[in-house]
Write a protein that binds this DNA or RNA. Structure first.
Length: 185
DNA sequence: CGCATTTGACCAGCGC
DNA sequence: GCGCTGGTCAAATGCG
C-alpha cells in the first residue's frame, strides 16, 4: 500500500463539498476534523481523500466482530476455528488526511489508544496505529509522516464512529476555529 | 492502581 | 513454496 490515489483539495475551494460527500457522516456533520486541522495549521493546509478498495460499506456493517478476534501475535494454538469471520477481505472505507503539522497527534475529538507501530519502507519515520477506545467502536486510524517533508502528517481513518464525540470542547482554539467555520472564514 | 504506550513476535496476503 | 511486508496482539513498561 505504498501508493494511494490522493486527491488534494483546498478547504476554501468549492470542490470541498464534493469531496466531503465521500467522508464518513461524522466528519461531514460536525467538521471536527477540519476544525482541528485549521487550529494546527495557519499556513499550508492540505486535505486529501484516500479511496478504499471497497465501494460502499454501510456504517452499521463497520462492527467488525473481530474485536475479540485476536489472530495476531497471540499465537493461540486454537486459532479460532469458530470464525464467522468470513469477511476478512471486506475492509472499511479509508480516508486519508494529509496535513501540515509539527505534531503527529491531531486531536480530532475522539480518544485513541495506540496499539502498534511499524517502520515504513522508504520512510525514516514510523507509522503509528491507533484504535478508538470507545466501547464497541472499531474505528481505527494510522498516522505517518512523509519522509520527504517531515512537516506533513498523513492521518488515515478506517471505519465510522457510532458514538458521539467525547471531547472537552473547552479548548479555546477549537471554539475559535469553529467560529471561523460558521462565519465562512 | 488503572489505564495508555512501547515493543517484539506473530500472522496473512502478495509477489516472485 | 519462500520471503517480504503490512497489520495486529499482548506482555512488559511507563505514567498520572
Amino acid at each position: 500500500m505504498d501508493n494511494y490515489p490522493i486527491l488534494f483539495s483546498s478547504p476554501s475551494s468549492s470542490s470541498v463539498a464534493a469531496t466531503t460527500s465521500h467522508f464518513p457522516s461524522y466528519m461531514v456533520n460536525n467538521n471536527h476534523v477540519f476544525s482541528d486541522v485549521h487550529s494546527n495549521n495557519q499556513n499550508g493546509l492540505f486535505v486529501a481523500e484516500m479511496k478504499s478498495e471497497i465501494d460502499v460499506i454501510p456504517p452499521s456493517s463497520s462492527n467488525n466482530s473481530n474485536s475479540s478476534g485476536s489472530n495476531g501475535g497471540g499465537d493461540n494454538t486454537d486459532m479460532k476455528s469458530d470464525k464467522k469471520k468470513v469477511d476478512k477481505k471486506v475492509r472499511n472505507p479509508r480516508y486519508a488526511f494529509q496535513t501540515r503539522s509539527q505534531v503527529d497527534i491531531l486531536d480530532d475529538g475522539y480518544r485513541w489508544r495506540k496499539y502498534g507501530q511499524k517502520a515504513v519502507k522508504n520512510n525514516k519515520h514510523p507509522r503509528s496505529y491507533y484504535r478508538c477506545t470507545h466501547q464497541g467502536c472499531n474505528v481505527k486510524k494510522q498516522v505517518q509522516r512523509l519522509s520527504k517533508d517531515e512537516g506533513v502528517v498523513v492521518t488515515t481513518y478506517e471505519g465510522v464512529h457510532a458514538h458521539p464525540i467525547e471531547k472537552s470542547t473547552d479548548n479555546f482554539e477549537n471554539i475559535l476555529s469553529q467560529m471561523q467555520i460558521y462565519t465562512g472564514y
